[in-house]
């Protein structure tokens, strides 16, 4: 079903326009997670769906992701590592000295830059979920292609 040439040129071009928009929407959902419905999990899954749309429509991205799968694995590992670093920083810097203590100022309720490290944590969780979902999909597609050959 997924050939290296992909689908027809109409589907390819339309998906090239739509997929970055979906990706941008995922980042928006992640960053504004402390003000509106959404958050890191929803944003990460939406970003992964942009990748999956590109993979299914265009064959060239799949070839690139096959050879450079370590990028996805690296971003996943780095994001969970930075989440751990955030926790330890809360232990060191916060006044209450607890794991995941909020060491940044809480700010005014309802503004974009508020809530201490909550937007940063949302972005990190979004990257982690996006990398995981894309990696699972790429692994399944690669296995299916090698089996059918």
């Amino acid at each position: 079903m997924i050939s290296p040439h992909g689908m027809t040129i109409i589907v390819k071009k339309i998906c090239q326009f739509i997929a970055p928009t979906i990706f941008l929407f995922g980042i928006y959902i992640s960053v504004y997670g402390h003000l509106s419905p959404g958050g890191g999990f929803a944003g990460g899954v939406i970003m992964a769906s942009a990748f999956i749309l590109q993979i299914l429509s265009d064959g060239s991205l799949l070839e690139k992701l096959k050879s450079e799968r370590w990028r996805l694995e690296l971003s996943e590992s780095l994001s969970i590592f930075s989440f751990l670093i955030l926790a330890v920083l809360g232990l060191l810097l916060a006044g209450t000295a607890v794991f995941f203590g909020n060491f940044l100022p809480p700010g005014k309720l309802g503004q974009l830059i508020s809530g201490g490290f909550i937007p940063i944590g949302n972005l990190i969780i979004g990257i982690e979920v996006c990398a995981s979902m894309t990696l699972i999909f790429v692994a399944l597609i690669i296995f299916k292609d090698e089996e059918s050959e």
Partner: peptide, 10 residues
């Protein structure tokens, strides 16, 4: 105290 308007994210 948490600074998050969305309670679920908080």
């Amino acid at each position: 105290e948490s600074g998050s308007a969305n309670l679920v994210t908080g």
